[in-house]
Design a protein around this nucleic acid. Structure first.
Lengths: 345, 345
DNA sequence: TGACTAATTTAGAGCGTTTTAAGCGCTGTT
DNA sequence: AACAGCGCTTAAAACGCTCTAAATTAGTCA
């Protein structure tokens, strides 16, 4: 609207074109092949050549073109990651995926789920980038869709159990996690421990089972008490009110996740119930909320770093060592004791 | 480790190679040029040809190769976005950037900031992908670094005022936002309104100025009261205690951001001060926290959607209409009234 | 010195697209 | 008769890199 109207298709500003391999080569009087070798750190070129090439490249501000090199080498060295950009847990996973991928010489392409972008779109995007393997965080697509995707590029599902999955899965043992919570509470002297359920899905089932099994293990079969709940704060509040109304307050409550636990906490405190003095509360996920000083929630961490490492490792096995039979990697979650659990009085 | 050890460089599983343009062309007995035209929806090919090509492409499951097409067309149709993946506000921006970019036929590449990836790395990554323009969310690099980057590819800084910036900037008027808060409080009858400061930086200055100016505008010069604070919950708690200790509780407190406001809220409530009955509290940012039922914080929204739209629009002006002189786009933030503000008694 | 080997270097053919310019068999106009 | 134009199609040359195979140079030893 302001200045020259000459079409600037891809320049923006009248920038000089980026230097190419050829420009670097011309500058040192070598072939592009040699320059390519030096820049990729391949054995061959002499020490003297290396130095000269590196110097020239630096002077020119040369920056290799991913596209061209991917095309020529038939390797994109890209790992596609599907994430829910609103999830703090995914954020942490991505952080560790980055470092794990970097260590093996790969770069990440992120494709986010939004209100208008579903999982299929994310898959399309990642495939269009010619990612060599796909890491799917919290994928909810049916098993056969994932299996089909896996046929186009090795896919690894992180964080979700998939029955009869025909692809790699990396996850933590949710039943074990809840088991650890119950153990912790029992060790603190609690016997009357209630559980607020999640909505539905594989994870929900696993965590509930973890609660039941642990209670039985401690001989507390009769004290098993599962309240209806969901993954939201609101559901936690409702469960809290239900508990208060019942007139039979347990000494500890375990919630399906942190959000729900926080709702629960709010409801209890509002009613004048001291946490953890009167009732202990535990969540699950160790999300950012639980760390806030005003909640300081005891919870279970899903061990993002280890899950990320394993996911990348699984991708490498498929990509570089040709593994074809799917694997399921189940990690142990770890209890994070904070301020909402205390010894019974 | 399990099966065949034949190298599978980029296949993973023994997948059939992806169909190319040539395969589609062969299937309908046309040249790749025609197929390319049809697939890109370029005028020329006849209706009959279009149908046949589309059918064949669908049957083969053809998916164009971004790399090859970027290389050939010298246009990547990619917008690079630098984000802090841990920021909920960035998450929202990204969501809207996606839809805005899609509308103009561009795709997004995300490069995230982590503990081990600084802004320079993010820039490198985005440039290596040959992004046509860069959208930087909350960039803190010095102005000259950003200006230099802008020379390599049109760059747009979102959310941060940059003095003497030699690149496009999209942001909201922070002083105006705080001004709106003060107006709201005054309208509710408040006169004694304190402000808890942030740490340091351009935004902090703007918001503090907004507070001061608004107080003066309402003839409340004498009531101006700025407390030391920071961007954390802990800082908010400290400020809350300072306020309580001072023995001179204002009827309303405005905090630099939501985190700080929540700390403040916690400190006040813990001390038995009713919010909003005795003291009103306001935050800034409208982040996910403020919406939680247990806080229900009155705050100011930065209008992510509009900022995202403007950022993409600015990029398009540079890319497709050749604008070269930098612009600064300042949007008005909007007050979100929730439950922590009330009429004075 | 020449023959032979080892160490470097490079020509050139792709990679899967886009794009330019030319070509198809016509009709219509000078 | 020459040729410009029609609506469509296509051959072939890029794009910036990698990689194979072959060429060149340097080094060693009799």
């Amino acid at each position: 609207m302001d200045d020259l109207d000459s079409a600037h298709p891809a320049g923006g500003n009248g920038a000089t074109p980026r230097p190419r391999l050829e420009d670097v080569a011309a500058r040192v009087g070598l072939s592009t092949a040699s320059v390519s070798l030096v820049l990729r750190n391949v054995a061959g070129p002499s020490e003297r050549t290396r130095r000269r090439v590196l110097k020239a490249a630096a002077e020119l501000g040369y920056r290799p073109d991913r596209n061209a090199s991917a095309l020529a080498s038939r390797r994109s060295r890209l790992l596609g990651v599907m994430v829910d950009i609103h999830s703090p847990f995914h954020a942490e996973l991505v952080e560790h995926l980055h470092t794990a991928a970097e260590e093996v010489g790969y770069d990440l392409v992120l494709s986010t789920l939004t209100r208008t972008r579903d999982e299929n779109m994310a898959f399309e995007t990642l495939l269009a980038f010619r990612c060599e393997a796909l890491i799917l965080l919290g994928a909810v697509s049916p098993a056969h869709v994932l299996a089909e995707l896996d046929r186009k590029a090795p896919a690894i599902s992180v964080g979700r159990r998939i029955a009869e999955a025909d692809l790699d899965v990396v996850r933590t043992a949710d039943d074990d996690g809840v088991g650890q919570i119950v153990d912790h509470l029992v060790a603190l002297g609690h016997r009357s421990i209630a559980y607020v359920d999640g909505g539905k899905g594989a994870i929900v089932t696993d965590r509930r089972r973890g609660y039941r099994d642990a209670m039985r293990r401690h001989g507390l079969d009769k004290r098993i008490r599962v309240l209806r709940g969901d993954i939201t704060e609101a559901a936690g509040e409702r469960a809290g009110r239900d508990l208060l109304d019942s007139g039979d307050l347990p000494s500890a409550v375990v919630a399906y996740n942190d959000q729900c636990a926080i709702g629960l906490l709010t409801a209890l405190r509002r009613a004048g119930v001291e946490v953890p003095d009167t009732v202990s509360v535990v969540g699950y996920d160790d999300d950012a909320l639980s760390r806030l000083a005003c909640f300081d929630l005891t919870t279970v961490s899903q061990n993002a770093e280890e899950q990320a490492r394993q996911a990348v490792a699984a991708a490498m096995e498929r990509l570089e060592r040709g593994r074809t039979t799917p694997r399921e990697i189940v990690l142990a979650p770890s209890l994070v004791v904070r301020g909402t659990t205390a010894r019974t009085r």
